[in-house]
Write a protein that binds this DNA or RNA. Structure first.
Lengths: 205, 205
DNA sequence: TTATATACAAACACTGATGTATGTAAACAG
DNA sequence: CTGTTTACATACATCAGTGTTTGTATATAA
């Protein structure tokens, strides 16, 4: 029984991607073999090599599948309704990201893989550049929001929107990092929302 | 010409550690082979295996050699003279760490390896726990400083030292992350000190 | 002075992973 | 209904890396 339907083939492809994510998480990207992935997906290496020419391609496919929609959502949150209440939109952006991590296991796993289960060398080094350019976009959007907030007198006087934006972004990066590393969920995860509120409260006039 | 002096042997050991750090940085920890390290150190695998039983042991030796002194320095900065001017001591702690990164290539390389050239699985997963417990210590010290600052009326009213401490720590984590990833040195590195000043200025009464 | 331990180099045995090539049954196009 | 392509499974060839063992010249202890 070989030669599945096109739809069945797409299903296998998806199963392979899911399997890769699961194995990457436990074994790390580098130590994960095509055999590992195939076993986890319930297929042979033949199937994996049919859909992806190598591990790097599979990695990128897995990453883009969860990351691209996520980035879209981020952009939406930060740009939409930024006019009315800019500080609230920043806060909602931060909270929304954490909430997404809490709700979606695949996204949570992706973050963990990207942060502590992947070495950014050779074929993977360009991913870092993508991440950096994505960060630049986020900073720009946050800065825009702070600028609007300042115009509306919602900030303390003498605060530079550009510096505030980077400060918030660094807070964000640190939060994501520690949130992911706090696998036990005992230290930081329960306090994430409170920390975001506190961070934003510091800025409000 | 075999059988070196004890001192010469210690030198080779150090050369191997240095070589490991250099190769880890370019090839990533997992892809680095004992052969790579030996070649970089100008010895054979025999020498490497003589000093270290495997790559994991070598990794831990390299990490501890630069990390332990660093942690000591951190503790000193945060605890010493914390009484007089707590906010300044926090700022000095942050600036000092960045300055250390700028001045010491080995430490800079270590951070880069730990952040984006290492997968925290199996033998390496305990390193994460060490990092987390180290973070707890830093947070505690920062909180202590903020508590003192509040007693001395240097903070705005209604600010919780505990939340401030975590906020600063997350800023710190984010800063280190982005600083290391900004290898080109064009984006964040030149502004690091300014960002620290701005971060602390937000808190001052 | 001699015996022994040291600090490696060189050689060996073994395993595991990769990529490819081949086989094949069923889906699909005509 | 038939030829061709698809979606895999299976088998093969190759190689790189690991850990260990052996060899050996010399430092060092006695």
């Amino acid at each position: 029984m070989v030669r599945k339907t096109k739809e069945e083939a797409q299903l296998t492809r998806q199963q392979i991607i899911d399997a890769a994510r699961e194995v990457f998480l436990t074994r790390g990207v580098n130590r994960t073999t095509m055999q590992d992935i195939a076993r986890q997906a319930g297929v042979t290496r033949g199937a994996v090599y049919w859909h992806f020419s190598n591990k790097s391609e599979l990695f990128h496919a897995m990453r883009e599948q969860v990351f691209l929609p996520l980035i879209d959502r981020m952009d939406d949150t930060l740009l939409v309704a930024q006019m009315e209440n800019p500080l609230a939109s920043i806060e909602q952006f931060l909270c929304g990201t954490i909430q997404t991590l809490e709700e979606s296991a695949p996204i949570r796993e992706m973050y963990e893989i990207m942060m502590i289960k992947c070495e950014y060398v050779d074929e993977f080094s360009d991913v870092l550049q993508q991440i950096l350019s994505n960060c630049s976009g986020i900073i720009d959007n946050i800065e825009l929001a702070y600028r609007r907030a300042k115009e509306q007198g919602q900030l303390h006087a003498g605060q530079d929107p550009a510096l505030l934006a980077i400060d918030t972004h660094l807070f964000f990066v640190g939060l994501l990092n520690m949130w992911v590393k706090d696998t036990q969920g005992s230290q930081l995860r329960p306090r994430a929302m409170q920390l975001i509120a506190s961070h934003m409260a510091l800025r409000r006039a």
